[in-house]
Nucleic acid binder design. Structure first.
Lengths: 239, 239
DNA sequence: TTGATTTATTGATATATATCATATATGTTT
DNA sequence: AAACATATATGATATATATCAATAAATCAA
């Protein structure tokens, strides 16, 4: 288990060069050179192996994390001690955003689904910059708003579907929004799918098998193929 | 149907005097007198009758709303055209917060559950102040973060419970967090309870009747009494 | 007041989902 | 390789939940 502070992987400080990184964008355009340098110099870049924990729910917030490469899950313990996946995050997502301003502790556990690279900035410095730079604060407002409505939206959509509908929905979600192709490797175990859509592992497996038997998808281990997209869409829409 | 812009009820501009209003707090403490006046002068206070719509999902955002008195529901249409209640808002809640920065349209429909009073500020002015005043922006960040994590938390908690558990959970929630007493009038119809916790009306009614028969609650129409709080808590915790 | 419409209620039944049991496969440690 | 753990898979069954149908009660409009 690897966390960003104890990472043994190579991490080096370097000027930011991610074009789609909001932090970089605002910093380079609006920050005074001194502050900008300070921010860039405080940046840590860390590699994570699949399964590594980047951030643990309940721990004190010490850094502001940005996903540079890879795929990440954000999850929370229910009050009944089950794990619930809140969202799947991808490059350019600021994954600690939803925790950062509502408490001093991380609200969610963040785990690498693939080998991933994350940039991070120290909590206090980030806070200082946000407090002193209008553009930063406003941009963060937009991002946090967007991120939270996405999560809420997802819950609303999932909760209006039965299990077949949910499975169809998330398969299409992965295909359309993450991989942009109908053939991909599922980044989640069956158990994680269950935690993402709120059902039991057995039923996830069962429904995936049914979809396969019915010629809607092809699935072999983690590799998945959408065979009959129209039918899958129907199940997602009406199931 | 009444909306804030077309309201025929008395609304008058006056200095803000709500002690727990964040807008008022920051404005009076940190804003330059001119800006503060401008903000206060732009304030509208409007009364709403139970059932009135304050804000409609999909409409252009024109004002920033604050609940002064009453009880409010915030809801969203699912993509299957069912209504889902996202949260119940009370005095001092800034109910348009979750919409305000993520799009130009309201994301949620906002409806009065009781006769209520709402203050509001014009969209553009509010945006200008937030963009120009650091304290404002940061305070808003905290609020939005808090609000969204509350909504998400609620979804997580509900989704880990079966229907009896959900009903027990929301009864306790109303008693503990809204009315601070074990006897109160349910502000929601059976249908709205169903929309709040994601189940059918029939089952809401059935379970409420069961709870009554089992001596856990007393319910007569909308009036509700918690009789056996311990048992209700058990159902909420383990159901 | 009446009639009409929505809301609340209950029961019977079908369906969806979870649970339990067991088996196979896969991967990991020794 | 053996032993162990974990993930995947399938079937049987119990349970939870939705659906359908039919009333009753409450609310609203004329």
């Amino acid at each position: 288990m690897d966390t960003i502070t104890t990472s043994v992987h190579s991490h080096h400080t370097s000027k930011c060069n991610c074009e789609d990184c909001f932090i970089n964008l605002i910093a380079s355009q609006h920050l005074a050179p001194m502050i900008c340098d300070k921010l860039y110099n405080s940046k840590k870049e860390a590699k994570f192996k699949q399964g590594d924990t980047l951030v643990e729910e309940g721990k004190n917030i010490d850094r502001f994390l940005y996903i540079k490469e890879g795929l990440i899950k954000v999850s929370q313990m229910t009050d009944k001690n089950e794990n619930r996946i809140i969202s799947i995050a991808r490059p350019h997502d600021n994954i600690t955003l939803l925790s950062f301003f509502s408490s001093e502790k991380y609200l969610y556990t963040i785990t690498a689904l693939e080998d991933s690279v994350a940039c991070s900035f120290p909590y206090q410095l980030m806070l200082d910059v946000i407090k002193s730079e209008k553009e930063f604060a406003f941009g963060i407002l937009n991002m946090i708003s967007f991120a939270s409505s996405k999560v809420i939206n997802n819950f609303v959509k999932l909760s209006s579907r039965n299990l077949r509908g949910r499975i169809a929905f998330i398969i299409l979600d992965f295909a359309d929004n993450i991989y942009k192709t109908d053939s991909f490797d599922l980044p989640l175990s069956r158990k994680e799918i269950a935690e993402l859509i709120g059902m039991t592992v057995e039923n996830v497996i069962r429904i995936l098998s049914e979809f396969k038997k019915d010629g809607i998808i092809n699935i072999d281990g983690k590799s998945i193929d959408i065979v009959d997209r129209q039918k899958l869409q129907l199940i997602s829409n009406f199931g």
